[in-house]
Design a binder for these strands. Structure first.
Length: 606
RNA sequence: GCGCCCGUAGCUCAACCGGAUAGAGCAACGGCCUUCUAAGCCGUAGGUUGAAGGUUCGAGUCCUUCCGGGCGCGCCA
């Protein structure tokens, strides 16, 4: 048990014995708002009711009884708050070795709370390259998976690629019609970018067709909203391009060899492109599924539900699920022509997934615009009698908006993931080339470091924002490399590594910490002591942004310490140098763990 | 119309599920490299937390109403 835990237990004992309240449990320790107040604080308000005593009296009494505790250097009541100071040497001796070894400590869940968690994320379409929205998804999913694993869960990362459907046929049709046999090789384009180009081209040709159609029908002027809606619907019926696309989908479903061949060729290009982007971002999966293999799942499930009276047949012939508990209209699960829809597939996929991987919990990392869909999905699975439906969770994240407005992939108004990484890469290179300190870097080394920094800049930019919120992407700000950024964190870590290396001292060889005690050192100690709990909280709340903030706090505290004090150079007392190196190394190990949990690269030198 | 989410410094975001004086970065201004990495550090300035009520020892956080914004409510995916 850690010192903090011991003291917490001790305080609970005091509360029980002093105030005769067997139910009471001391509130969690907090950091006092001012360092001068002490190391730990505890508000005593929550105890007031059950102890039937004023908070300040409780704080005072606990302080009184703790003064003689050998683990405590000082204990005082500041009004209703209890402020404690530990003996720094003892606290350092406990925390530093533990952080150096990367012990999870309180950050590790007890065996009975560990689960097998499936995290499904990324799930791209094969009709376009990945953009910033996908980046947010990838980076969130990857980080969440690592966080959950870090606190003791077993995690399976899963990707379900949307590789079929009418939208895929659009890029296929455009390539077939206007591509003139262009390939990634002939064009020098990454496969996903090439296909994306034809998806955009399709949208352009369709818009032209619609314009011509409107002109021919005398719809030059914009009508009322109702009229416009009718016209759009009429155009959808009249469009030759759309009709051809639908025909292509039918041929695809009939496994027409020509269409299937075109499909696998173009998908192959996209997969190769995706692989490169994933590799670049350090995103990996334990299992990859393809919708072309799973899209038929679910029909039997619906038929079965119909037979069991859970679903009903509408007079049109469609099968639907009534949803009075959500106060919603019935959700159609099979169209009147018997075909399946998105929801049907998701139902089938979930059931199949649980059969294959008997998870305790599954997290879908999907944009917030699908909250309604998942609410309905989980409800229907529950109605079908799957107890695990309660263990499904939609990690809903907000949209990434641009300073110029919304992203629209059909119109090519997106920030492309690869382009953005390239831009960040050259920005990092430029800074390195301008720096005299880095004049001895080899060119290949520079490129390697720039890649790592670009990785950190992008991921941290995305991860530091609470997933739930929409975020704004500002191209100017995102290539900033100073201040609250990924490179700042990576830089702090690289400095520590260099420092420890140059000191020639073994951080682990340090047994005594009596020389430490400067304000900046204590600040670091507190952050390190709370670290395992922060990891646990971030995992519990499924919020990497929480951890990102704590990593930044730690890096900033170290930078302050580093500016204020010499670690070993010109430090007279060898014991002090040794202890400061151990402190630096412990911070380094923690930063390293934190960055790893965010999926951010940690270059040795910067 | 109904449902969900958001509104904090000029801008982008924090605030450890209700705790002490709401914090960072960027932008602005002023300092700090013959010493362990200046992608750094220190300082100045910047706020009626959209508005009004309420709940309580205590509210940016919870409740109500209003204002403003986003996203949904397909036999599309």
């Amino acid at each position: 048990m850690s010192l903090m835990q011991e003291l917490h237990t001790r305080i609970t004992e005091i509360v029980v014995s002093e105030f005769g309240n067997p139910e009471a449990k001391a509130p969690d320790f907090d950091l006092p708002p001012e360092a001068a107040m002490g190391h730990l604080s505890m508000p005593c308000f929550p105890l007031a009711k059950t102890c039937r005593r004023a908070p300040r009296q409780i704080a005072a009494r606990i302080a009184e009884l703790l003064v003689d505790d050998p683990r405590v250097a000082s204990a005082e009541a500041a009004g209703p708050y209890l402020n404690l100071r530990l003996r720094p040497a003892d606290w350092f001796a406990e925390v530093l070795p533990s952080r150096l070894k990367g012990d999870a400590g309180e950050g590790l869940l007890p065996d009975e709370e560990r689960r097998h968690v499936v995290v499904e994320f990324s799930c791209p379409n094969t009709n376009k390259p990945q953009h910033l929205g996908h980046v947010r998804n990838n980076v969130l999913g990857q980080s969440l998976a690592r966080l959950l694993a870090a606190v003791g869960h077993r995690v399976t990362k899963v990707n379900l690629i949307n590789d079929r459907g009418i939208h895929i046929c659009k890029s296929m049709l455009a390539w077939q019609r206007w591509g003139e046999g262009e390939t990634p090789q002939s064009s020098g384009l990454k496969g996903d970018h090439l296909v994306g180009r034809y998806y955009v081209l399709f949208a352009k040709k369709l818009a032209e067709e619609e314009q011509a159609w409107r002109a021919a029908n005398g719809y030059g002027e914009k009508g009322t909203p109702e009229e416009e809606q009718r016209r759009s619907a009429a155009f959808e019926q009249a469009s030759g391009l759309l009709a051809d696309t639908r025909a292509m989908l039918v041929r695809w479903e009939k496994e027409d060899p020509e269409i299937r061949s075109l499909w696998s060729t173009m998908n192959g290009w996209v997969f190769a492109g995706f692989d490169e982007t994933y590799r670049r971002m350090g995103v990996t999966f334990d299992k990859v599924y393809y919708e072309s293999n799973t899209y038929l799942l679910g029909r039997d499930l619906v038929e079965d539900g119909l037979a069991r009276g859970i679903f009903e047949r509408h007079e049109s012939g469609a099968v639907q699920c009534p949803l009075p508990e959500l106060k919603l209209d019935p959700k159609v699960l099979l169209r009147s022509d018997g075909t399946t829809i998105y929801m049907t597939q998701d139902l089938g996929t979930a059931v199949e997934r649980h059969r294959e991987i008997p998870f305790d919990e599954m997290i879908y990392v999907v944009g917030s615009e699908q909250e309604h869909h998942f609410k309905v999905l989980f409800t229907i699975l529950g109605k079908l009698g799957h107890a695990w439906a309660e263990k499904l969770y939609h990690l809903s994240y907000g949209m990434v908006n641009l300073t110029t407005g919304k992203m629209k992939s059909r119109e090519g108004l997106v920030v492309d993931a690869d382009d953005l990484l390239d831009e960040l890469h050259s920005s990092c290179l430029r800074v390195m080339n301008e720096s005299e300190r880095r004049s001895d870097f080899e060119e290949s080394k520079k490129a390697e470091v720039a890649a790592a920094l670009a990785d950190g800049a992008l991921k941290y930019y995305v991860l530091k924002v609470n997933p739930r919120l929409d975020m704004l992407y500002d191209p100017q700000k995102s290539i900033e490399l100073t201040g609250d950024t990924g490179p700042y964190l990576q830089y702090a870590l690289a400095r520590i590594r260099s420092l420890v290396r140059k000191s020639g001292l073994d951080p682990a060889a340090c047994g005594d910490f009596g020389a430490l005690g400067e304000a900046e050192e204590i600040e670091l100690l507190k952050l390190l002591a709370f670290w395992p709990r922060q990891v646990l909280l971030a995992a519990e709340q499924r919020n990497p942004a929480r951890l990102a903030g704590r990593i930044y706090d730690l890096a900033r505290a170290f930078s302050s310490f580093f500016s204020a004090h010499s670690v070993f150079d010109r430090v007279e007392d060898p014991a002090l140098a040794q202890q400061r190196v151990a402190l630096a190394a412990a911070v380094g190990a923690t930063l390293e763990q934190g960055l790893e949990l965010l999926g951010i690269a940690t270059p040795e030198r910067i």
